[in-house]
Design a protein around this nucleic acid. Sequence first.
DNA 1: AACAGACACAACCGCATTGCA
DNA 2: TTGCAATGCGGTTGTGTCTGT
Length: 348
Amino acid sequence: MVHHCCNKQKVKRGLWSPEEDEKLIRYITTHGHASWSSVPKLAGLQRCGKSCRLRWINYLRPDLKRGSFTPQEERIIIDVHRILGNRWAQIAKHLPGRTDNEVKNFWNSCIKKKLIAQGLDPNTHNLLANPIYSINGSSNYGKSSCKLSCCIYDEQPTFSSTVISVVGNDDSYPVDMKPPSLITSLPAASSVAVPAPPDDGYYSQSCSTLLHEGISTIPTCKFEDQKRDIVQTIREQNPHASKESPTRSSWESLLIPFSSTHPSYHQPGLGRSDCTWEWDGIEPRENKAVVLHRKQQAVANPPEQRVCEVEIEKRKDYYFSGAQDTEMEASFESYCNFEFDTLVPYGI
DNA sequence: AACAGACACAACCGCATTGCA
DNA sequence: TTGCAATGCGGTTGTGTCTGT
């Protein structure tokens, strides 16, 4: 068999035998794998180096965790995937003992179906189906199950730059597994906003720094609303775009100025000077005030009344017209009673 | 018991990236 | 700067097992 990757040598393919595994383990544990291309020959295997590497990484490595994925691991996969997309290797880095292949298989065979069954697009984590799906915050603000806000969904992913944010008050949920949070209406002391951007209204210092460092995931963006324009970070829905290292211009295209005349400006969580985004890569950062706020909410709202705040923002002003509001409210009501826990995959 | 379909998981393939001469 | 080999990654395919008929 001629193989494309290893000098046209004869190589075996297919499943590995226990004898082959043993040879590979013995060689790697003794000599390491400085050069995978030389491993097969030195280990006495009729395999290509690529195959040896894969077998070691995905199956023979001693630090691999065996067995089914735990609910916690599943939670992490979903949360990280929501941010990074199909970047399995990156996702696997947050699951010690798990491989990218394993995560990928688990996603395709299990999680994907769960999300679809819950009416969520596994690629975008947005709701499937309806061309316009929305929540109007002004009429729902104050309801125990949905305090916030303005949620519009469009089936055209190329145009629906969105932010999905969640605030859960379930303290049984480990902090490091919590999804990105939008903290609203906190006391001023809780704000951790950085100084206003020196050169323009769109960049916080931390954003610019991370961009400069080439951070490929969504950076921490903290805004101080000294100006009248409110800035939001938007994660581009295009999965291809998400793979690229962000440039200043690409991030600029994701930052949308909010006008104070915008209907959402006066709604909680949107366009508020006391609204602080916490989106630190894939692990949301929480300060003490936030944790305290969460605990206070937990007292006010028993766990079974978990508050999930979901916000999907869309830039087309068209949808913010009064006529659309009516439609938005109606469509929200039809979902409100049951979809929040599935809209944000807390309890899968 | 035999078969088909579903499923999970291992492995392969092709392309992108990286490192080096 | 360029070309090449090695490596890494994600999509896809192959294969064994399970389950229902």
